[in-house]
Design a protein around this nucleic acid. Structure first.
Lengths: 334, 334
DNA sequence: CTGAAAGCGCTTACAG
DNA sequence: CTGAAAGCGCTTACAG
């Protein structure tokens, strides 16, 4: 018998099929001895409940769908590791609830897809990934307009249910750290026109704290480039040309910061002696840099847990505006 | 109406429910006009086929389950990025077939699970991840012994259906590169007792090529440490103590190589002037290192595609022993 | 070319 | 506490 059903278990245990179902689900009001008999029969037959039949009946699949938006044409290994880390923590939060996780990487209309909940495949959907793929976010905005609900990381512009880091506090911590270590020629490098509001928040928290100390900062927009790392390399070149006295840089993300680090070395600056550098995200590659990158690290575990809880609405949290705490991890660059 | 069914579409299109199903599935022998009417009705209602009902009927879920084995207690962001890249390429191969991908990170008996196919949730299962988690691979070996089938990356010891890189060729390319660049005091750093046969294959291809040129290499086993990076740092310290003349190192994986790179810098060696270094895996972090890591890069896209094809047995490939091509990517360290 | 009906394998309200 | 039966929403063999 290739795949035993609950009827097979019933026959072997000498009970009805409905009793098998109740016993295996742990329904109350099943005789302990009957329950044990059923359990034994099920084990002996290698019986596993058919999830399609079960989900069809229960109208719930105990599954979360996670969509990760990529840059068009982007190599899978080039995806920002921050999103992989987030994927991992979402998987952990999902698994803790004994839910399944369906993942989908989407980059163009060739594979845009938002019907996971509509098809019953998932109970809720989470969307993460680059904000730079406008077409993708437009697609999901449209899907939302047609009544589809989901939760996302960041802030791709539309009135999605979102969750973000405490970006302003991160900016503030970066500024405090630079000020305390005596830096005086400070700069911020980050996208200025990005739909990713998180970058603005980091910048604004940073600038506001500097202003409170009577200081200002040069603000540099990275030029267009293949990826954030390349943007960082190019941005710091332009920055040093315009402001050679720069002695501290806060970069809006770690990948950008890693590019900035490379650009600073190329320009012959010593880090952190000549220029201090702080990134944002806490990606693993930062710990491997030389010197290791000082960064603002969001609590990724908390983010995964909160995203899943929010998607499932299984607690009383509001469905939008949740903030994930960040803390400054001081390593070699600042 | 919260979730329209095929009966609702049928009513609106003025046909029977069976015709709706046939029209939407593209079954032959449906009048073109009828088909169009059904399509319109479905669109207007926002109808999406219920995958549970469909899968239950078809006895196929068009889903692949991907299990990634982690180190117990390992932080999600500490997972070797090679496996995330592999996950990404498996997702791409899955999506190209219009299949779904269910992912699961497993680390201890608290969340070991192999019933994805038995429960009907997936049509096939792929297992990747660290070979260092013996308990996990034992669990899957046991599952296989009970008749469960799957395909895995690497070589966790048991007679699984596996796929690996062309490790011997990689080792050979590394040796050729060192010899051609005039290195004479060559070493290999990698686990010697690992169930991961891939490490042995890399070493053996490397040593055999050196031997063919009348050369030998010091072979260093990394000491136990928190992760591969830490192992690399520690291993190179010991190696330099025993063989201070070392001028070239082949490390069994990139994470190990990145640790070796750090250890070499700590020891004051210039790279590549004093010591040349080659890794294996082609992870992104290698490109961010300073100098950028020279490495053997497996064709990850081919690996994802081949794993999915193998899992689905949808081509004539043998179910075991497939090799993925690797090529030498020369960057800064060698 | 289309419809009525059976059946995929469950869960649970209803009877006993 | 347990069983017989309905029904979740599809797909397709069978009739027409």
């Amino acid at each position: 018998m290739l795949r035993p059903t609950s009827f097979d278990v019933a026959e072997r245990a000498g009970v009805s099929q409905s009793t098998v179902s109740r016993a295996l689900r742990g329904s109350p009001g099943v005789n302990a001895e009957t329950r044990a008999r059923v359990a034994t029969a099920a084990r002996e037959l290698g019986y596993v409940v058919d999830r399609h039949a079960s989900s069809l009946r229960l109208k719930s699949s105990e599954t979360i769908a996670l969509v990760t938006i990529c840059r068009p044409g982007e190599d899978r290994s080039a995806i920002n590791p921050f999103y992989f880390a987030l994927l991992g923590s979402i998987a952990a939060a999902t698994s803790a609830r004994r839910f399944n996780l369906l993942v989908s990487f989407q980059e163009s209309s060739a594979n845009f897809r938002a019907d996971f909940v509509a098809s019953g495949l998932a109970d809720a959907m989470i969307v993460i990934g680059t904000t730079s793929n406008r077409a993708a976010w437009d697609y999901f905005a449209q899907a939302q307009a047609s009544g589809l609900d989901f939760v996302c990381w960041g802030s791709p512009g539309s009135p999605f249910h979102w969750m973000r880091s405490e970006n302003d506090i991160g900016g503030q911590l970066a500024a405090d750290h630079f000020i305390a270590s005596g830096r005086r020629h400070i700069a911020f490098i980050g996208p200025q026109q990005s739909p990713q509001r998180q970058f603005d928040e980091r910048r604004d928290g940073f600038l506001a704290t500097l202003a409170a100390h009577g200081m200002t900062a040069a603000v540099a927009e990275p030029p267009a480039a293949a990826d954030r790392h390349a943007q960082g390399v190019a941005a710091v070149q332009a920055l040093l040309a315009a402001h050679p006295e720069t002695d501290a840089i806060f970069a809006a993300s770690d990948m950008l910061a890693l590019g900035v680090l490379q650009g600073l070395k190329d320009a012959g600056r010593r880090i952190p002696e000549d220029v201090a550098l702080i990134g944002f995200d806490g990606i693993r590659a930062g710990t491997l840099a030389d010197p290791a990158l000082t960064t603002l690290e969001p609590d990724i575990d908390a983010a995964g847990e909160a995203l899943v809880a929010m998607a499932l609405e299984d607690d009383e949290r509001t469905r939008s505006g949740t903030r994930i705490p960040v803390h400054l991890v001081v390593r070699g660059t600042a």
